[in-house]
């Protein structure tokens, strides 16, 4: 099945070694996200190789500016491994913008390093236009207020994307 079809059908996990979902009774599955016909999924990269052995702070300083929107998350946008990360990726699907995502579960040094780098203790973390904006709660509130649209538009024109 193609990536696009997986997104359309919202299949969270296809094969692999993902742990089973929570078995807590009465807990609903991920909240449905609005359809996003214009969103194009980022390439599924071998993210653990993205850093290529470079020192973490140096890599992070560069990576947060590598795309108008940068998302540090658990798992990938198509296969999120945490509800907060899934929410952040889902919100960003509403915007027609390039999102560079990094799976912190693939690189323990980045998982720790990004918390230092951003001075922020939790994952996910979102950068827009190279600027740290926060985690999933803040992203949702900025999405609802329209502020996120403004920031993304600015970041996109700044990068000529």
């Amino acid at each position: 099945m193609s990536i696009l079809n997986r997104i359309k059908r919202k299949l969270p996990v296809v094969g692999g070694s993902a742990p089973p979902p929570s078995s807590t009774p009465g807990v609903a599955s991920a909240r449905p996200q609005p359809a996003a016909p214009t969103w194009s999924p980022p390439e599924e990269e071998q993210e653990s190789n993205v850093r290529a052995g470079r020192p973490v702070p140096e890599f992070l300083a560069e990576f947060v500016k590598s795309s108008p929107v940068v998302l540090f998350m658990k798992g990938s946008p198509n296969n999120p491994m945490c509800g907060f990360s899934a929410n952040a990726a889902g919100i960003l699907r509403n915007y027609d913008v390039a999102v560079a995502s990094f799976d912190v579960l693939s690189d323990a040094a980045v998982r720790d390093g990004i918390k230092q780098f951003s001075q922020w203790p939790t994952i996910p973390q979102v950068y827009v236009g190279g600027e740290f904006i926060g985690g999933s709660d803040i992203l949702m509130q900025m999405h609802q207020s329209g502020e996120l649209r403004e920031m993304i538009d600015q970041a996109r024109s700044a990068q000529g994307a």
Binding site: P21, A30, G75, C82, G83, N87
Partner: peptide
Amino acid sequence: NVSPPCMGGS
């Protein structure tokens, strides 16, 4: 203030 469900990732 709705929290997302756990997905078992960590």
